[in-house]
Design a protein around this nucleic acid. Sequence first.
DNA 1: TCGAATAGTTACCGACCGGTCACACCTATG
DNA 2: CATAGGTGTGACCGGTCGGTAACTATTCGA
Lengths: 204, 204
Amino acid sequence: MTVCRRARRREIVLFQRLASCFDNTGFCGIGVDAIAEAAETNKMTLYRHFGSKDDLICEALRFTSEKAAAFWDLLEASHPNDPMAQLQSWVKARAQCLADDKYGCDLANAAVELKEQGHPAHVVIENFKLAQRRRLEKLCRDAGVSEPELLSDTLSMLMEGAQVSKLATGSEGPSMRFMRACEAAIASFRQPARNTADTVGSEA
Amino acid sequence: MTVCRRARRREIVLFQRLASCFDNTGFCGIGVDAIAEAAETNKMTLYRHFGSKDDLICEALRFTSEKAAAFWDLLEASHPNDPMAQLQSWVKARAQCLADDKYGCDLANAAVELKEQGHPAHVVIENFKLAQRRRLEKLCRDAGVSEPELLSDTLSMLMEGAQVSKLATGSEGPSMRFMRACEAAIASFRQPARNTADTVGSEA
DNA sequence: TCGAATAGTTACCGACCGGTCACACCTATG
DNA sequence: CATAGGTGTGACCGGTCGGTAACTATTCGA
């Protein structure tokens, strides 16, 4: 058991160093040797902890997603019993991430890059994104907006879109208005219920 | 000169076959041999037309972006002198692409995958996305909405976000509400000017 | 129809890929 | 202090990578 704990401790250290390792190169574009170097270790040690490169990627993504889950707990604790303040705090935090992280969410990038069907990372990505969606939707619902599902998905899309847009056109592209777009969306759903799709004449 | 035209014709055929070639595998995940097979030719012919794999990727992206430019002309022709109808038509067309294309915009995917600085594809991607942004913003402005720049960037982010979100969580994720989100955004900017960020109490 | 330009084929290059092996080296714990 | 569990090192495997050479077959324009 003590050995097990020793190994686990080592893995956590590895994960932390691995977290920002795929950012520059992507997942296919980096070799296991380079990964090992970034993790300040060597290839054999990596292969003693993980069955394969794909397995390693999965575990690294899982680690990242668990760290992100902690963010939500922090968010709820920061404004207890004030979901609207939490929602605004979420926007602010996402805008901060957008400004800080040069390359967006690892999970989202992995979804784009590893799109061959059946890649083991897919279930990690999907579980993470669905969990995020659930929490955001709950937040919107608790905040009492008129259409919580629609607002939640709008904010999700704005967030993902801002990140890929920043990769494509830099920080002076559409992503520069991410925060204002979120605020406008929230504001438009705050008033009772009437201005969603009735003024746009589209059938189906 | 005639030979030049002959070669150019061949290149166009190659491009058309290449267009959907990177969709399944990404750009790093496919070898030149496989690319040649997908283009129904062989590696030597590819290398006689393009200097390198990166060059080939750039040209393929450029071809795709030129095809996309034609879409805008079609859009304007479909509803002459009715920018709001064009805007709604844009939303509908993007929703259709979202439903049809299994993997989103090649240019956006390339931006995510080829994020090493200095990759020659970056200028192609950036030029394309900025051009799209300009046209969308002009459309919003002509449609007479209250904040054309903000609406345009909101729609851009929703579009990019819907695509990556679909890759991450499938068509039942946030992307399922892409069209409604766009319509709500347009609607909220149609009325005079007052509901953008004043109800959300955020300083800075 | 002739000749030049292009396409196809095959084999090949060095480099690197993911992954494994054997073996020496640490280091924490009994 | 002995030892088992973990780490570091370097060589190695077969396969594939991007890219090229040499040569033949085909096609198209004058």
